[in-house]
Amino acid sequence: MGYFVNVEQGVNLFVEDINPSASKTIVFLHGWPLSHEQFEYQFDALPQMGYRCIGIDWRGFGKSDKPMNGYNYDRLADDIHAVVRTLQLDNFTLIGHSTGGAIAIRYTARHAFGVSKLILIDAAAPTGFTKENANNLLTEALNDRPKMMQGVTDTFFFQYITAPFSNWFTGLGLQAAGWSTAAIINTLRDENLNADLPKISVPTLIVHGVHDKVIPYEQAQILNQTIKNSHLVPFHYSGHGLFWEERIKFNELIKQFVG
């Protein structure tokens, strides 16, 4: 079922809550500039395995409200904290993909409330975009956002995707507001998470596509070296979208890690 949760005055986040009666909970944070719908192939499988799956659209993205401000890691992590407190979640696994991985890291370092395990998928951490890449994306986002999003889709996957899948995936990114899409590009360029990593103490699974053209695999190795109690699993047949490209392997790995 889907519903909205108020995170600050005038800002409500959309939450997809699947199998809410299950005893084990997994919270999903999508990547830029997508929505919780990117995890369709986890939501198809994991509730059948007995998990409660909660997908949250960040402010500015998907079905959530789209205010003009609040697109830094602190505010985005505080939004997630507000949802966690409102839903009274505890002892849950937090999953973040790409920029969602960065938000998950900031949440765990800043709040840690309720998180028992952490899974980072192709995380945009400890740094995000280079200045050059960010500025190029920003120019496209502010002048031809559909073209920018098609370019994101074209570089996202290592494996072949069909035209209908490409159209669907590109459409997810176009649900976002233009201003929030641009604001997160700035965040990915200007913020880093080096100070957050030593603060993470929960068991952490790091998964990363070795062919990732968005966030290099080397960054996953840095996370593994810096986050204590972490384990890195490379995905040899994936780019930035292992949650779809190797979904059977990934879903099974989630099951093994969450227990």
Rank of each mutant, 00 (worst) to 15 (best):
T108G: 07
S116T: 11
K117Q: 14
L118C: 09
I121A: 05
D122H: 05
A125T: 05
T127A: 05
T130D: 09
T130G: 15
T130P: 05
E132M: 07
E132Q: 13
N133Q: 14
N133Y: 02
N136K: 15
L137T: 03
E140W: 07
A141V: 11
N143T: 15
R145L: 13
P146W: 03
K147R: 13
M148Y: 04
M149F: 04
Q159A: 07
Q159T: 12
Y160Q: 13
I161A: 02
T162A: 06
F169E: 10
F169I: 08
F169D: 11
G171A: 12
L174K: 10
Q175L: 13
Q175W: 02
G178F: 00
W179G: 09
W179L: 10
S180V: 03
S180E: 04
T181K: 02
A182E: 07
A183E: 09
I185L: 14
I185Y: 08
D190Y: 01
N192I: 00
L193H: 14
D196H: 08
L197H: 06
P198Y: 04
P198M: 07
P198C: 11
K199F: 00
V202R: 09
P203M: 06
T204I: 03
G209E: 02
D212Q: 09
K213D: 12
I215P: 00
P216I: 02
P216C: 03
E218K: 12
